[in-house]
Computed example of a mutant assay.
Amino acid sequence: MRYPAVAGMFYPSNPHELIEMIEHCYMHRLGPKDMPSLGCYEKPIGLICPHAGYVYSGPIKAHSYYALSKRSDPMEETTVVILGPNHTGLGSGVSVMDDVWKTPLGEVEADKEFVNLLWRECEIIDLDETAHLNEHSIEVQLPFLQHLEMLNIIKFKIVPICMMFQDYETAVEVGYFIAKIAEELNRRVVIIASTDLSHYEPQEIANKKDMIVIRDILNMDEKQLYEDVVNYNISMCGYGPAIAMMRAMKELGYGEARLLAYATSGDVSGDYSAVVGYSSIIVE
Rank of each mutant, 00 (worst) to 15 (best):
L148W: 09
L148G: 08
L148V: 05
E149T: 02
E149R: 00
E149L: 00
E149C: 13
M150E: 11
M150H: 11
M150G: 05
M150K: 15
M150A: 10
M150S: 12
L151F: 05
L151W: 05
L151V: 07
L151T: 02
N152C: 10
N152A: 14
N152M: 01
N152E: 10
N152L: 06
I153N: 13
I153P: 06
I153E: 04
I153S: 01
I153H: 09
I154V: 08
I154A: 03
K155L: 05
K155W: 07
K155I: 02
F156V: 13
F156K: 10
K157G: 10
K157S: 15
K157V: 06
K157N: 03
K157M: 14
I158G: 11
I158P: 07
I158E: 08
I158W: 07
V159S: 11
V159L: 04
V159Q: 04
V159F: 04
P160M: 01
P160H: 07
P160G: 09
P160K: 06
I161G: 09
C162Q: 10
C162R: 04
C162I: 12
C162K: 08
C162H: 00
M163E: 07
M163L: 10
M164Y: 10
M164K: 14
M164S: 11
M164T: 13
M164V: 07
M164I: 09
F165Q: 13
F165K: 12
F165G: 11
F165M: 14
F165R: 15
Q166Y: 10
Q166C: 15
Q166I: 12
Q166L: 09
D167I: 00
D167K: 02
D167A: 00
Y168F: 07
Y168N: 02
Y168G: 10
Y168Q: 07
Y168C: 00
E169K: 00
E169T: 00
E169Q: 11
E169A: 09
T170Y: 01
T170I: 13
T170V: 02
T170W: 08
A171Q: 04
A171V: 01
A171L: 12
A171C: 15
V172L: 09
V172W: 08
E173T: 11
E173H: 08
E173M: 05
E173D: 04
V174Q: 06
V174I: 11
G175V: 01
G175R: 04
G175T: 01
G175M: 03
G175A: 11
Y176H: 09
Y176N: 07
Y176T: 04
Y176C: 08
Y176R: 12
Y176Q: 03
F177D: 13
F177Y: 13
F177E: 03
F177C: 06
F177M: 06
F177V: 03
I178A: 02
I178W: 11
A179S: 07
A179E: 01
A179F: 00
A179D: 00
A179Y: 02
K180E: 01
K180D: 14
K180M: 09
K180G: 08
I181D: 00
I181G: 04
I181M: 00
A182R: 03
E183T: 08
E183D: 14
E183M: 07
E183N: 14
E184Q: 11
E184M: 13
E184A: 04
E184H: 04
L185T: 03
N186T: 05
N186L: 15
N186P: 04
N186E: 14
R187H: 14
R187L: 11
R188K: 15
R188A: 09
